[in-house]
Simulated scan of single mutants.
Amino acid sequence: LQRLGDIHYMQSEYSQATEKLTNAQSEFENIGDRRGTAQCLQSLGYIHYLQSEYPQATEKLINAQTEFEKIEFRLGAAQCLQILGDIHRMQDEYPQAIAKLKNAQTEFDKIGNKLGAVQCLQSLGDIHRMQDEYPQAVEKLTNAQTEFEKIGNRLGTAQCLNSLGDIRQEIYYMQHQYIQALENLTNAQTEFEMIGDRQGAVRCQQTLGNIHRMQNEYPHAIEKLTIARIEFQMIGDRRGAAQCLQRLGDIHYMQSDLGYIHYLQSEYPQATEKLINAQTEFEKIEFRLGAAQCLQILGDIHCMQDEYPQAIAKLKNAQTEFDKIGNKLGAVC
């Protein structure tokens, strides 16, 4: 039963896994197998953790840790400590997270478990990153990356590269130096792709797009963010797809703003060109508000040039779009 539960868990079939592991836990308790009981509790806690059910996860893991300590199974106890630390980290409870992860790292070091120790080091680096403590974060994540490479753990290596890229993006954004960030993120993306981690790869693609956007390199940004949006949609990550859509919208708004500036300066041909381009792009990404606003300004441009039939057509279309999306202010064309 325990093995079946673990198989369901590895296939992300959490309901079936929970059922099997709960039954297995009861059986182990009936026959007095404390290690089997603790392992089931540990797996159940991890399943809750993966589903962001932190109170249930914490309860199971503390019970599992206690059982492991009673039978002096130090690896199991250290693994529970590690996940408990990550749970605190995910809830921004950094002092508790640091304490748990340091204890877990110490235990892993004592029993010679290099993977567990370096994973704790990675999590500690991420905590420093989340608190904007960049020098400590870079030190820990660089050390973790080196250790992952030594033990041949490509996923861990890629995750560290990704985090280091994010840090350098944040640091170098203020200094307008993105080269190292781009290099780290490109390397991380390659690693994620080679090990088949689509979520990790598309996150890198998204960040690369955002870096190009901040450098006003809009064609590159649009390319990266469009690809990332499609990938997010394919893997069912609606939040990631929405974030890409938002950034693409920001880019096209900047382009429409340039058109509006030309309009205010009575530079109507330049304004028309930019607004038509922006409208087209908004329509491609199905951002109806932006497209309607472009139509509205294009109508005003025709009006200013006494081209009334074209103005009426554009403004009516804009009004229809504003009505469809419930934008009452825009609809008063």
Rank of each mutant, 00 (worst) to 15 (best):
L1P: 07
R3T: 15
R3H: 15
G5C: 01
I7T: 14
H8E: 03
Y9F: 11
S12M: 02
E13V: 06
S15R: 12
L21R: 05
L21M: 00
N23D: 14
N23C: 14
E27Q: 15
E27S: 13
E27K: 15
F28H: 15
E29Q: 14
N30S: 15
R35A: 15
L41A: 11
L41M: 10
Q42N: 09
G45M: 06
G45I: 04
Y46C: 02
H48D: 01
L50D: 14
A57V: 00
N63P: 00
A64S: 08
A64R: 11
T66Q: 03
E67H: 13
E69S: 02
I71T: 11
E72Q: 07
F73K: 13
C80E: 07
Q82Y: 06
H88K: 09
D92C: 08
Q96Y: 07
A99Q: 12
A99E: 13
L101D: 02
L101W: 06
N103Q: 06
D109E: 12
K114H: 13
K114F: 02
V118N: 09
C120D: 02
L121E: 10
L121Q: 04
Q122T: 00
S123C: 01
D126F: 04
Q131I: 06
Y134Q: 01
V138L: 01
K140T: 06
L141W: 04
T142A: 08
N143L: 04
Q145C: 05
K150G: 03
G152R: 14
Q159S: 00
S163K: 05
I167Q: 09
Q169I: 01
E170H: 14
E170M: 14
M174K: 13
M174Q: 12
Q175K: 05
H176F: 15
Y178R: 11
L182Y: 07
L182Q: 11
N184A: 10
Q189A: 04
F192R: 04
D197R: 08
R203G: 01
R203W: 10
Q205N: 12
L208V: 03
N210W: 09
M214I: 13
N216P: 01
N216R: 08
K224R: 10
K224H: 11
L225Y: 12
I227D: 12
M234Y: 08
I235P: 03
Q246K: 11
R247H: 15
H252Q: 10
Y253S: 13
Y253C: 06
Q255P: 00
S256D: 02
S256Q: 00
D257P: 03
H262S: 07
L264H: 05
E267R: 07
Q270G: 14
E273Y: 09
K274A: 03
I276P: 02
I276F: 07
N277Y: 00
A278I: 07
A278E: 04
Q279F: 00
T280R: 09
E281C: 07
E283T: 08
I285F: 10
G290H: 09
L295H: 09
I297L: 07
I297Y: 12
I297A: 00
G299M: 05
D300A: 06
H302A: 12
H302Y: 13
C303V: 08
D306E: 08
P309A: 03
Q310M: 05
Q310F: 11
I312E: 09
K314P: 12
L315I: 05
N317M: 06
N317Q: 08
N317E: 04
A318Y: 06
D323I: 06
I325D: 07
I325K: 12
K328Q: 10
K328G: 09
A331K: 04
C333T: 13
